[in-house]
Design a protein around this nucleic acid. Sequence first.
RNA 1: CGGAGUGUCGUAUAAUGGCAGUAUACGUGCUUUGGGAGCACGCGGCUUGGGUUCGAUUCCCAGCACUCCGACCA
Length: 414
Amino acid sequence: MKQSELFSKTTKNLPEGETAKNAQLLIKGGFVNKSSAGVYSLLPLGLRVLNKINAIIREEMNAIGAEELLMPSLIQKKYWEQSGRWNTDVIYKTGQGSDYGLGWTHEEVISAIAAHFINSYKDLPKAVYQIQTKFRAEPRAQAGLLRGREFLMKDLYSFHADEKDLNAYYQKVIKAYKKILDRLCLKARLTEAGGGAFTKEFTHEFQVLNPAGEDTVLYCDSCDWAQNKEISKMEHGNKCPDCKKGSVKMERGIEVANVFKLGTKYSEAFNLNYLDKNGKKNSVVMGSYGIGPTRLMGTLVEEYHDEKGIIWPDAVAPYKAHLVLLGEDKKVKKEADEVYKILVRHFGESEVLYDERKASAGEKLNDADLLGIPWRTIVSDKTVKMKKVELKRRSEKEPKFVNEKQYFKLINKK
RNA sequence: CGGAGUGUCGUAUAAUGGCAGUAUACGUGCUUUGGGAGCACGCGGCUUGGGUUCGAUUCCCAGCACUCCGACCA
């Protein structure tokens, strides 16, 4: 992809009033555009990142036997009334007939659908998920992609014959989420928390410890114990209640995922039953599990940036390699075009961004740092004379001057 | 939803009861090319409604929008 052909471009001016680093850098770099408070467009660059996050999520969901589907955003009032959750969220009025609530979660819809297909113990267990836009009437959208009024959510729902089976799957999902976060290079704490509007039971959240977070997490500095401050009786400095060795620390956390045991709350409301081996009717036992792709994207920027810009982990970077041409000498340009072909062959057709714009060296280098593509390659008068190219990893300070063989040796090492 | 603040070219900002200026971006031309280059010319702007006034972008009231702090929430 030639950078001169990109739809978006970077800007020098900081967006007014945006204090969240993720919002500042994503807007400056042309990854997203803010339409209203908490409502963002994902521009081509940003969508590339989001799609890569989604691809990882899909792989791990499919790996635990979940099937992808897509439910509507418009959910008629009767569904919400059936579960007693017709509250103040975003309402869509048709002007005639019933109102709709724009979906902020899908327990109701999925329960109604599942009731069509689950009738027997032979139909269990089942798991389905979707990646879909959610709407929430946030009184105060803030912190860029971390809290939107419209945001992307992967929600997974599982159906089981009994608690035991649910518990086993619950652990499976936790493992899958750990794998997703691991692949995204995010260190998250599995944190015990309250159930909010979903369940009265305790639930678990994945919290990325980061000062930009809106939650407060108490955790042990030597074992895995962690609790959300909302429900915790511990305080900073206490001895860990679990391992009895470490001490309890308190930090801000970004909740990137959560897992809920719903039990039979929704299956009872929607007559989601099955007949067991004895022909006896039982309520299906359900679980629901969410992870927020757009929030993950914001979290990644909060975790991986410096004063110059974003430092994308390889797995989600919009492009794997960034080729930067410095100068307008025809010989140098020709050489850069050759290098571009080689890089495309190695990284893939759509994984190389080629900055062949007519712009000053300073502007190009600063843009490269802002965009945060992991491997930066420079071709200039200097490198052509050396018969080498300059290779620099975004996360490292010092560049290396290498020939083709050394180049791929370095790249394949990572 | 409570508290505070702000609305001026695409973006970021300045001043002003009567003439709205700058930076950046954009267009044209020339020069320049290893850390946001220079010159010249050009395009482009006062949140909405009401009030005060000879006259309002400016003052007053209301709305709307946005930002920050708090409550709430993936």
